[in-house]
């Protein structure tokens, strides 16, 4: 029961309180770049959730079964990025072959994900927070993906409406998006300290 409660708290923490996009500035590029339409944003979010779950779990396993027992911590970053790049490639091939419909909807985002800092960032944070059981690492990975989807969808919703607003010339495009994002982080700051 205690374990369940811990996992639930960890999950809520990473989705809302320590949201990677809004408090750790990870995954800002897609957040500002593609979130113009809400359905695209959701597709991107799903793809990221999928890959981050895989990458988070795999890197935790590699870190704890290979790198730490043999004192190979120096290779950590190289291993992590190779695992992520490999996972993205595998997922892309697999999805294209077996789920063509799914590939149509979010496959185009997959190659972009290798350089999405949210994924490598999460793997590094799992290491930094010294998460020592696999279950918690998996829960955190899923939560990070869902948190990213949440942030990117909220942003897309706001931007759809922003297109109708009369924004002063120099502020159009990225500047107004950044300011909106700033206000959004203020709202999310209200959740801090909940856990």
């Amino acid at each position: 029961m205690d374990l369940l409660q811990d996992l639930l708290l960890a999950f809520l923490g990473i989705v809302i309180v320590n949201n990677l996009v809004l408090t750790k500035f990870l995954g800002i590029c897609p957040y500002l770049g593609v979130s113009g339409r809400i359905d695209m944003a959701f597709g991107m979010g799903c793809a990221v959730t999928f890959v981050v779950t895989l990458a988070g779990t795999l890197t935790w396993l590699i870190d704890h079964l290979l790198l730490m027992p043999y004192g190979l911590e120096v290779m950590r970053y190289v291993c992590f990025i190779l695992v992520i790049a490999g996972a993205v490639q595998l997922v892309e091939m697999y999805v294209r072959k077996f789920f063509p419909a799914l590939y149509e909807s979010f496959g185009i985002f997959l190659p972009l994900i290798t350089t999405n800092c949210a994924i490598l960032g999460l793997c590094l944070f799992i290491n930094l927070w010294e998460i020592d059981n696999l279950l918690e690492a998996v829960v955190l990975s899923v939560g990070a993906g869902i948190g990213f989807t949440l942030a990117i969808c909220i942003m897309a919703g706001i931007r759809e409406n922003l297109e109708l607003a009369d924004v002063p010339g120099p502020l159009r495009g990225a500047p107004i998006t950044l300011i909106t994002a700033g206000l959004l982080t203020l709202a999310f700051m209200g959740f801090a300290g909940m856990i």
Binding site: L22, P175, I179
Partner: peptide, 19 residues
């Protein structure tokens, strides 16, 4: 010093550069 300051300062800086 908090995230909100980062987003808004960069937004205004970008707006200035655009202008």
């Amino acid at each position: 010093g908090m995230p909100v300051g980062a987003f808004i300062t960069l937004g205004l800086l970008l707006a200035g550069v655009n202008a």
